[in-house]
Nucleic acid binder design. Structure first.
Length: 475
RNA sequence: GGGGCUGUGGUGUAACCUGGCUAGCAUAUGGGCUUUGGGAGCCUGUGAUCCCGGUUCAAAUCCGGGCAGCCCCA
């Protein structure tokens, strides 16, 4: 992907590949078109399956939250109040109590959790819902990256002990690795966020940041240790073994599906268009027939035979029967990101073979018809390459910086700077604000994946460094 | 939150500064002919000045407001 004009590329691909339509006419609300929605559905399916594997069950809570619920936890309201859409009227009646369109569902779910939890037998609770939330974003909106309505999954857990909740946070990290990294191929860094940047109402927040081609990071999933901050005001209690009533320990986890799609598009896309991983693509293999008028019938017949063969193998195949020229079709499906193209012309028909072109590096090979199942292997190898290359790009974008100047340069070049930093608790906030002002970048936190020993002095204040922090520009 | 730019058929644009004739072009789209190993060609048809208000004999064009989009900065 060309870095110099990522923004143009991105805006353009939305239209060209028919992913979304921005013309709905309400700021921050967009129409997601079939090609993108199919990919989202696939991602949901894989995500939900993995959540089931680790013991979550699905649930559905209402989209509206009574004002009194939303306001029960003080920090939480303070964090979200400015972004809430309110329903104050229904039909011809003013509502007695305003209803919030959920910006996130803690305050919708926990009143019910209180009713459902009496004893240890009711714990842990591990529930998730897939759905939409609404936030009145005041920053500039950008298709799929920041909207006022977005699709996500939110998993809300409750445990008898703090340890149980902390383990859940680590399990969420592992789930994120399995799904977003291994299955979707999107590399990211998982950070413990600084205290000044945690979720409103959480003890602490961990967040996965991926790197967009222009060097800005995009947060694609978060998991929060909510501690007992919500269980107390919502009175989610249980009777413990010692006969004492105790408050549960809670977590919430939220992968943002729109943003994951935005990352998928941007990280794998190239100057020709999208490149969609095999298992997520609406069309996995497209057959492009090539013929002279006199051979049309037999080549189409052979193409249909190949189509049927692939369909029977469970592959999402599409035979492009339109009247366009082959070159037009090649370009169209490359733009749409179909991972495998199968060309069938006179040569292929005569040899009972197919020509297979993979989208990522556009390598071409001829397969005899009876080995056509090989395309799955080709596609898998393609995906592994995409994944590796993306991972390498992320790793290579991390650079050491020990002075403010180095950091500024790194960030300006679209890198993620790894810096010695005094503290990620509130004591370090002043240093962070200086970075933000001078370098126009964010302190993303410290890595979760490994413990990094801080050396030297804080890049800003010069005090002994307590942390190895990562600094980058963000979306 | 601050600043800037923009809004013309489905899409991309010309005309806007300096108001004036039938709003031009490309692409897409309907029909016809023709055509298929990297975005074919010819003929023909359909289709547009974001919304509200103001200035003016006359507004796509100038002014004000709204809505929407993009970029930069916080």
């Amino acid at each position: 992907m060309v870095v110099s004009n990522f923004s143009d590329w991105y805006n353009n691909i939305m239209k060209e590949a028919e992913l979304v339509d921005l013309r709905y006419g309400v700021k921050g609300f967009i129409v997601i078109r079939p090609w993108a929605m199919f990919i989202l559905k696939k991602m949901y399916q894989i995500y939900e399956e993995e959540l089931h594997n680790v013991g979550h069950m699905p649930v559905h809570f209402p989209a509206v939250i009574p004002e009194s619920y939303l306001k029960k936890e003080e920090e939480h309201v303070a964090g979200f109040e400015g972004e809430v859409f309110w329903i104050s009227k229904a039909g011809f009646n003013e509502l007695e109590e305003r209803l919030a369109l959920r910006p996130t569902s803690e305050t919708a779910m926990y009143p019910m959790y209180a009713l459902w939890t009496q004893g240890k037998k009711d714990l842990p609770i591990k529930l998730y819902q897939s759905g939409t939330v609404w936030r009145y974003e005041t920053k500039a909106t950008k298709p799929l990256m920041r909207g006022r309505e977005f699709l996500w999954i939110e998993a809300h857990c409750a445990f008898a002990t703090k340890e149980g909740a902390e383990n859940q946070v680590m399990e969420d990290v592992e789930t994120t690795n399995k799904v977003i990294s291994s299955s979707f191929g999107i590399p990211f860094l998982f950070f413990r966020r600084p205290d000044w940047d945690k979720f409103a109402g959480a003890d602490y927040t961990c967040a996965a940041d991926t790197l967009m081609p222009d060097g800005r990071v995009l947060q694609i999933a978060t998991t929060h240790l909510l501690g007992q901050n919500f269980s107390k005001p919502f009175e989610v209690k249980f009777m413990d073994d010692d006969g004492e009533e105790k408050y549960v320990w809670q977590t919430s986890y939220g992968p943002g599906m729109n943003r994951i799609l935005a990352a998928l598009i941007s990280i794998f896309g190239d100057e020709k268009g999208l490149v969609i991983p095999w298992h997520l693509s609406p069309v996995q293999a497209v057959i492009v027939p090539i013929f002279k008028e006199e051979s049309k019938e037999s080549i189409m017949a052979y193409s249909r035979e190949v189509e049927k063969l692939l369909k029977n193998k469970g592959i999402r195949v599409m035979l492009d029967k339109s009247d366009e020229t082959p070159g037009f079709k090649f370009n169209k499906w490359e733009q749409k990101g179909v991972p495998i193209r199968i060309e069938i012309g006179k040569r292929e028909e005569e040899n009972r073979s197919v020509t297979v072109v993979e989208r990522y590096d556009r390598s071409k090979r001829t397969l005899p018809l009876d080995t056509i199942g090989e395309i799955e292997k080709v596609a898998n190898e393609m995906f592994e390459k995409m994944k590796e290359d993306a991972k390498k790009r992320l790793e290579e974008s991390i650079v050491e910086a020990n002075t403010l100047e180095d950091m500024e340069n790194a960030v300006k070049e679209g890198k993620i700077a790894r810096v010695p930093f005094c503290s990620l608790s509130l004591e370090g906030k002043e240093c962070y604000e200086k970075i933000k002002e001078k370098v126009k970048a964010e302190v993303r936190g410290r890595l979760l994946s490994k413990k990094e020993e801080a050396r030297g002095n804080c890049i800003v204040c010069g005090k002994e460094a307590g942390e190895v922090a990562y600094v980058a520009r963000q979306y």
